[in-house]
């Protein structure tokens, strides 16, 4: 058996175990009186974060291997909704709004784009956002926007001098999202990420896919 296959098999099991752990924890919470929830909540959140980290790790590994990612018809509204589900647990007080239309269509690797959105939402949350909105447009390729009301990007990041100013987490979030965008190629075109600060405060990150 090839080394990559072994790694893939181990990670596959890891993912499944973490998912069952999450299911068990959620099940437990639903059966325990509300006043004890605060004891279980941190465990649930950490498990969720572990799962997201694992997904990120496997994707990084595969991006590095330059593997061929399966791309297919995909529905941004569903992908965004999955990403919201995966992060809401972590940040129960943040308002996450999915404004993407039902008919909006894309052609991408669902798992990767979901991960990219999870990463962007996490970034926003860590930038102090309380309200995050996801929108999309499929008139020319596909663009998915994540808008927040946090403190916005630092000048050094907007100018491209630095990749991160964060002290918490790996600080690789935006870089990772760029890798994912670039893995989406159509002939000469490849995906890209643009960032901007909003006039009314907060930031917008846009994921453009060909």
């Amino acid at each position: 058996m090839k080394f990559e296959h072994l790694v893939a098999a181990v990670i596959h099991d890891l993912k499944n175990q973490l998912q069952s752990l999450l299911d068990y924890e959620q099940d437990a919470i639903s059966q325990i009186p509300a006043r004890y929830h605060r004891h279980l909540q941190p465990i649930l959140q950490r498990t969720n974060r572990l799962k997201n980290d694992t997904m990120q790790m496997v994707s990084l590994f595969r991006l590095e291997q330059k593997e061929n990612f399966h791309m297919d018809d995909a529905w941004p509204r569903d992908t965004a909704s999955d990403a919201i589900e995966a992060t809401q647990l972590q940040y129960p007080t943040i308002q996450l709004v999915n404004e993407i239309g039902d008919e909006c269509q894309g052609f991408y690797n669902e798992n990767l784009i979901q991960l990219a959105l999870v990463t962007l939402i996490t970034n926003s949350a860590q930038a102090g956002a309380t309200h995050i909105t996801l929108t999309a447009d499929d008139s020319q390729g596909l663009t998915i926007n994540v808008q927040d009301d946090g403190h916005g990007f630092d000048k050094t990041i907007l100018s491209g001098e630095k990749d991160t100013t964060k002290t918490e987490g790996s600080g690789l979030g935006l870089f990772f999202v760029k890798l994912i965008a670039e893995a989406h190629r159509q002939g000469e075109d490849c995906g890209k990420v643009t960032i901007a600060n909003r006039a009314q405060g907060g930031a917008t990150v846009s994921l453009h896919l060909p």
Partner: peptide, 16 residues
């Protein structure tokens, strides 16, 4: 449908 998935993911996917 790729594993692992949640109830919501299954609902969306099946609907499509």
């Amino acid at each position: 449908i790729t594993k692992p998935f949640t109830l919501n993911m299954l609902r969306e996917r099946l609907t499509r």
